[in-house]
């Protein structure tokens, strides 16, 4: 609440003298009429929740998103002529909803679990709006970007095609090459005509987010193993590292029981384990280099066995992950 007070004092600068009291009163009125207080409170809360590394950029995006949401809401939503250009605008509208949903999903890192869950819900509701049943009842988003607690059964679920598209975008934005993410998407895939319920949607989104992080870590791991000026790393070394990685993943699956303690109630234990595995991976790369070093030293004594390039390493690491993702049926 301290921030709120500071903001107030900014609205009426301390230099204002009593002669300007009337002006400051009208300013106050203006601000409350325009809803500035609510707007800024919402923005600050969102920002503190997301803890972005670039708060200014975050606010810029936040306000831009709100502005375009409210502008399209008033321009496209209420007029009656969307009946005759319906089929044409449906695609565009869907694209717009997808973009906004992705924006919400990008807001918070998945490790900020409750905030991330909120955003997944907002994104899901947005995509659900696109469904033909809900077209007429479309409402512009609340000004603070929060999700209205409307039940999601109304839309019947997000269309499968849209769901798959969302996952693809998430992976490619996360810096994962399409070839690497393809097997994962294969597992999470839903048919275009299917209606995806919220749980599946959340599972897919979270898996993709964790997977993107995992692949980035794997890429970093490879960079650690290979010396940049000596070309690709040797195969035995990489295999040793991957072996350690696999072990860590298996260890993490063994500890599902304790990691559920601190997790939210709804969290899928398998995913939670993957999050855990991410930490193990980081740990095995940095915190316990002796174990890794041991394995690598052992591998080196076995003599040369050819090289492994970054792509191959990435694929092998990805496979370790993907085999642990259950197939969505």
């Amino acid at each position: 609440m301290a921030d709120k007070e500071k903001r107030r004092s900014g609205a009426t600068p301390p230099g204002m003298t009593e002669g300007k009291a009337t002006k400051s009163d009208s300013d106050r009125e203006f601000l409350s009429q325009a809803g500035v207080g609510e707007l800024l409170r919402g923005a600050i809360l969102k920002m503190v929740e997301a803890r972005s590394d670039d708060p200014i950029g975050f606010l810029a995006d936040h306000f831009c998103n709100l502005a375009s949401a409210s502008e399209t809401g008033t321009a496209g939503g209420s007029d009656g002529d969307h009946l005759n250009n319906g089929p044409l605008s449906a695609g565009a509208q869907e694209q717009q909803h997808l973009n906004r949903a992705l924006w919400h999903l990008r807001l918070t890192h998945h490790s900020q679990r409750s905030a991330f869950s909120n955003n997944v819900r907002v994104a899901y509701d947005l995509l659900n709006l696109t469904g033909p049943l809900r077209r007429s009842g479309e409402a512009p988003e609340a000004p603070d970007g929060s999700c209205t607690d409307s039940p999601t059964e109304g839309g019947g679920g997000v269309k499968g095609g849209l769901y798959t598209q969302t996952l693809q975008c998430l992976c490619s934005e996360g810096g994962v090459p399409a070839s690497t993410s393809a097997p994962l998407l294969q597992r999470l895939h839903c048919q275009d005509h299917e209606a995806v319920p919220y749980d599946i949607f959340r599972h897919g989104v979270l898996t993709c987010a964790v997977f993107s992080d995992y692949i980035r870590q794997a890429q970093r791991l490879y960079a650690e193993v290979c010396c940049p000026d000596e070309g690709p790393a040797s195969r035995p070394l990489c295999l040793a590292v991957l072996g350690t990685l696999k072990e860590a993943l298996e260890t993490s699956q063994g500890c599902e029981a304790n990691c559920c303690d601190n997790a939210n109630t709804k969290v899928n234990p398998c995913l939670e384990a993957n999050v855990k595995a991410l930490r193990y991976l980081e740990a095995s790369a940095k915190i316990s280099p002796d174990k890794l070093g041991q394995a690598m030293a052992g591998a080196q004594t076995r003599g040369p066995g050819g090289n492994m390039d970054a792509k191959e390493f990435e694929n092998a690491a990805a496979e370790l992950f993907i085999t642990r993702v259950k197939v969505v049926s």
Partner: peptide
Amino acid sequence: FGVIRYFA
């Protein structure tokens, strides 16, 4: 153009 657009 609206307060939100201004902040944006």
